[in-house]
Simulated assay, not measured.
Amino acid sequence: MAKRETTVGAVERASQILDYLYEQNAECSLSAIAQGLGLYKSTVHRLLTTLKGLGYVYQNPSTSHYGLGLRLFLLGSRVSQNTAMVELVKPIAQELVEQYNECIHITAPYPLGSEDSLPRQLLIGKIMNPHNVLTVAPPVGAVTLCHCSASGKCMLAFSPPSVLESRRHLPLPRQTESTITSWDQLERQLATIRKEGYAEEDGETEEGLSCTAVPVFSGDKLIMVLSISGPTSRLRALDKGQLLSSLRQAKDRIEALLA
């Protein structure tokens, strides 16, 4: 039994190392990784050596720093290609792109960390008009905070109350001048989202960009959020009623496919 627990613990620590390198988005030294994770350098070195041998990390011969390896890229590419849920949604999202000539995002809840970390979302799909000059960030695979985006606020609105209650002690980071940084204000907005069934944001993540989002459910469980994003000047010039109707029809079609 002890050996099994040790093995599971090693897997968890290896996963923490990969997550740390991903979040830093840069090569990191052994000392920085150990300090960032609160682990012994000897433990981190042993795990990095194993991960390096398997191709999950590489070591820069000039600096001895570590980064994410090619094998993760290959695995990620395969997941992206074979994710049935995203593939089901893409044709419906493409219709919205053709109708509005704006970017459609498909996001999913990111696994919750400890109560000392804010809820985040994972961008699993992005469909764009290839002729648009403006590229709406972030890229597929990005993990972002929920409180400052329409899609993220959709997730928070339909999350169990305990998710927010246990994290009210945490500050809400400001991304722009429009970002909500008050828990009371955020919770009032989430109550409105639950009542109306959609969320909006104007410049809360990035100045000059807006977004409208609707939640997608499987039974009673939120599984993804469908959103349309673009320059505020274009998106808010659209007929709001028609836009919401289009998003809700797309949501209903996706839920029927996933039923």
Results as ranks from 00 to 15, higher is better:
85 M>F: 05
86 V>Y: 02
86 V>M: 01
87 E>D: 08
87 E>W: 00
88 L>V: 11
89 V>D: 01
89 V>F: 05
89 V>Y: 02
90 K>Q: 05
91 P>L: 14
92 I>L: 10
97 V>L: 12
97 V>C: 05
99 Q>P: 00
99 Q>S: 13
101 N>W: 11
101 N>H: 14
102 E>M: 14
103 C>D: 14
107 T>I: 11
108 A>K: 11
109 P>S: 09
109 P>V: 05
111 P>V: 03
111 P>R: 06
111 P>N: 07
112 L>C: 06
113 G>T: 07
113 G>F: 02
114 S>C: 05
115 E>T: 15
115 E>P: 03
116 D>T: 09
117 S>R: 08
117 S>V: 12
118 L>H: 10
119 P>D: 15
120 R>E: 12
120 R>M: 14
120 R>Y: 00
120 R>Q: 15
120 R>K: 15
121 Q>Y: 07
121 Q>M: 14
124 I>M: 02
125 G>F: 02
125 G>Q: 01
126 K>M: 05
127 I>L: 10
127 I>Q: 04
127 I>H: 08
128 M>L: 09
129 N>S: 13
132 N>F: 02
132 N>S: 14
133 V>S: 07
133 V>R: 11
134 L>F: 15
135 T>R: 13
137 A>K: 13
138 P>D: 03
139 P>S: 06
139 P>V: 07
140 V>G: 02
141 G>Y: 03
143 V>C: 05
143 V>D: 00
144 T>S: 14
145 L>D: 04
145 L>Y: 03
146 C>W: 00
146 C>V: 02
147 H>A: 01
149 S>I: 07
150 A>E: 09
150 A>R: 00
152 G>W: 06
152 G>N: 10
153 K>E: 15
154 C>R: 01
155 M>Q: 15
156 L>G: 12
157 A>W: 03
158 F>T: 10
158 F>I: 11
160 P>G: 15
161 P>V: 15
161 P>S: 09
163 V>Y: 07
165 E>G: 14
166 S>L: 15
167 R>H: 12
168 R>S: 12
169 H>K: 10
170 L>D: 03
173 P>F: 06
175 Q>R: 06
176 T>N: 02
176 T>C: 02
176 T>M: 01
177 E>K: 08
